[in-house]
């Protein structure tokens, strides 16, 4: 994939970050508004697709570190599993943080309300963890599928040369 024109690249440089911010908003407000870790993670992973389309594959592969993505993905899954395991004294996936005060421990008023960000216990924590995992996983899929296409193109060029 070749880089697109200067106009496309400039617009992408500005607006790709808005996609990241919007996705982060969806992840962080997962327990208050429609959305959550999976959806917000998919939105944030669009960032890599934006960069790939606008800047071309060669430059993108110079920027991304696959090992970092893999580590972030594993970390997200481990935090998710750990948040489930910490409530094991009651039962697996028990919400041990809810309504205890402190981190994510506020009580929400019943019925329609304006939303308390510091509520819902492990649910918010798991949203963040799953968001991390989905971001890194989908980015890895995009990067590696592009690598597969590039390998194919290289092979075709070689066979044409022969």
């Amino acid at each position: 994939m070749n880089p697109l024109s200067l106009i496309v690249r400039t617009v992408c440089n500005v607006f790709a970050w808005f996609m990241v911010i919007f996705g982060a908003y969806i992840i962080v407000h997962g327990h208050l508004s429609p959305g959550g870790g999976f959806q917000g993670g998919a939105v944030v992973a669009t960032f890599i697709a934006f960069l790939l389309v606008a800047h071309g594959g060669k430059r993108l592969l110079g920027w991304v570190k696959e090992g970092l993505f893999s580590a972030v993905e594993s970390t997200g899954l481990l935090i998710f599993l750990g948040a489930g395991l910490f409530g094991i004294s009651t039962t697996f996936f028990y919400n041990f943080l809810a309504k205890k005060g402190g981190l994510f421990g506020s009580v929400v008023p019943l019925g329609s309300n304006t939303g308390v960000l510091n509520s819902s216990g492990t649910i918010a924590l798991m949203n963040l963890a799953v968001g991390l995992e989905v971001v890194a996983g989908l980015s890895l899929i995009i990067v590696y599928m592009f690598k597969g296409i590039r390998l194919e193109l290289d092979r075709e060029e070689e066979s044409h040369d022969r």
């Binding site: 208050l32 508004s33 429609p34 959550g36 999976f38 929400v108 019925g111 329609s112 309300n113 304006t114 939303g115």
Partner: peptide, 23 residues
Amino acid sequence: IPVYTLAGEVKRMVLPTPQALTL
């Protein structure tokens, strides 16, 4: 939708479990 944030006066809500499984 089954979300209480700024929901207003709600009388009925859609079933949440099929939505979670669809996710």
